[in-house]
């Protein structure tokens, strides 16, 4: 009688031990920081893209400023320094305006490479997706 009691007791303890282990493992896995965020200065252009049946455009400032100074796009090419203030149409790009000034298969890839610019997830909101230190202009 005593022996079987002891056995059930130790089995119970073992089960509790295992349960606690599994629960704490699961909890600590949950606590792993999943840092999902855009790079600082990434701009989403989705005024027309999704309505036209393509992915939103993601413009990475970091990538471009390694290769070009701000003034090339914001002075020579005429991009306003405000997300959403520029009406960038594919027609203009194909005709060498805005992005098409470089994205012409001479300086950078040409406009037929849709997926390289139209690379965003469905449903993204237009504007600056500023990474982790800021929410971008007008959002403070």
């Amino acid at each position: 009688m005593m022996e079987s009691d002891l056995r059930t007791h130790s089995r119970h303890r073992f089960r509790r031990f295992m349960r606690a282990g599994i629960v704490s493992l699961a909890l600590s896995m949950l606590a792993i920081p999943f840092s999902l965020h855009a790079e600082y200065g990434d701009v989403v252009l989705n005024k027309r893209a999704e309505k036209a049946g393509v992915r939103p455009v993601i413009f990475p400032h970091w990538f471009h400023r390694i290769r070009f100074r701000c003034k090339v796009c914001h002075s020579e090419l005429g991009f306003e320094m405000r997300a959403g203030a520029n009406d960038v149409l594919m027609w203009d790009i194909v005709n060498g305006k805005f992005c098409g000034m470089c994205h012409n298969n001479q300086i950078a890839w040409g406009p037929e490479n849709c997926d390289l610019c139209h690379s965003g997830k469905q449903g993204l909101e237009s504007g600056i997706h500023g990474g982790d230190s800021t929410m971008g202009p007008g959002r403070w």
Binding site: L36, H37, A38, E39, D42, V44, R55, I58, D115, S119, G120, K121, Q122, L124, H129
Partner: peptide, 9 residues
């Protein structure tokens, strides 16, 4: 994994 780019692209 940045939450912006479509991983299925």
């Amino acid at each position: 994994q940045d939450g912006l780019h479509d991983p299925s692209n």
